[in-house]
């Protein structure tokens, strides 16, 4: 299928990704883990959304649900998932594998495990191209070379013949990005792609991703736990906690004027030079057990602002600005600058 079908007309401003009331639970004989509990968001074409959350917040599960990568038997998915014109819930496995890699691509955290150690980088990229596009092996190889140049891999011809273990961590991640971009997807999903990298390499990869995303006009959903990474790359930010988006808005709004107590707590517990010599304002306690469904706001037990009502009613998203919303019933209080 051609790419044109997959990308909705930008002029009409139809969202590229539409997620409505997504629930994911992992069911086994012993227990049910409710990993995602009612996530909704839109992504416009060419937009970068960062999903921020700590381990167990459901951010990676949301991404994998979007690509339908979760095990069918164990993971129960309900809600609406649309990428372009495709209803990701209704598609069968054959159609899904056509879409994966061509319309939607994914970059993982550990490039060493995401690349097959027994094939050369060039072989793996050409395989991806051949799977989705009608062209000869030669053309595919030329495309692979071109894409390696695009991700700024030095001496790309030599690297095409290299095995993953022969590359350094940064080059491996670039090769993985190249593979993900080889069929010009309209949506790229990136799951903590820079977390395993050194600081001086991480910034290179972030700048590269930002540049490629602009050039390709791709939608990008970027999952991270690092607020600094989000500030570098995001147009919009969604903060996840206990399987819900607790705050969503433009990067500037969420990071500079956070309204949800969890976002406020995350920002204040970020270690900075100013904090030297005194305690950091840490969020007390630990995230909830996702096997036990809690009544009310799941952040309430750790929240500075919580009142009795917090543990009885589940808060709905409240608009606090232009395309900026937070799930909290104490929003008037969190706005108080003195309370920060």
């Amino acid at each position: 299928m051609s790419l044109a079908q997959a990308i909705p007309d930008v002029a009409t401003k139809a969202p590229l990704v539409q997620v409505r009331d997504l629930h994911v639970s992992f069911v086994s004989r012993e227990e049910t883990v409710r990993a995602v509990n009612g996530v909704s968001f839109d992504l416009m074409p060419g937009e970068v959304l960062c999903i921020i959350g700590e381990s167990g917040s459901g951010k990676s599960v949301t991404m994998r649900a979007l690509m339908r990568l979760l095990p069918r038997k164990r993971a129960v998915i309900t809600g609406e998932l649309r990428v372009g014109a495709h209803d990701m819930i209704a598609l069968d496995e054959r159609r899904l594998s056509e879409i994966r890699g061509s319309v939607v691509s994914m970059v993982f955290q550990e490039p060493m495990t995401a690349l097959d150690p027994v094939y050369t980088v060039g072989r793996q990229i050409t395989e991806t191209i051949l799977r989705h596009q009608r062209c000869g092996r030669r053309t595919a190889w030329a495309r692979a070379l071109e894409i390696l140049q695009l991700v700024r891999i030095p001496s790309p011809e030599r690297r095409l013949h290299a095995y993953p273990h022969e590359l350094s961590g940064g080059l491996r991640q670039r090769a993985l990005i190249a593979m993900a971009l080889s069929c010009r997807p309209s949506l790229l999903l990136a799951d903590e792609p820079t977390t395993a990298l050194d600081a001086t390499v991480q910034i290179q990869v972030l700048i590269l991703l930002r540049k490629l995303q602009k050039e390709f006009g791709m939608g990008l959903i970027f999952v991270t736990h690092d607020l600094g990474v989000a500030a570098q790359i995001a147009d919009r930010v969604a903060v996840m906690y206990a399987g819900q988006i607790v705050e969503e808005g433009s990067a500037r709004d969420v990071l500079m004027q956070p309204r949800h107590p969890y976002t406020i707590g995350m920002l204040s517990s970020t270690v900075t030079a100013e904090a030297r010599g005194r305690d950091i304002e840490a969020i007390a306690g630990s995230p909830p057990d996702m096997r036990v469904l809690m009544q009310g706001c799941s952040f309430a037990p750790r929240c500075r602002f919580s009142v009795a009502a917090c543990s009885t009613t589940t808060p709905e998203p409240v608009a606090v600005g232009d395309r900026h919303s937070a799930r909290c019933i104490r929003l008037p209080e969190t706005f108080d600058p003195a309370a920060r």
């Binding site: 909830p288 036990v292 037990p301 750790r302």
Partner: peptide, 17 residues
Amino acid sequence: TTLDAAGRPLAAETSTR
């Protein structure tokens, strides 16, 4: 209950264990 460094309770957690 999880305690902080000084032994003060931090926040209630629920568990079935």
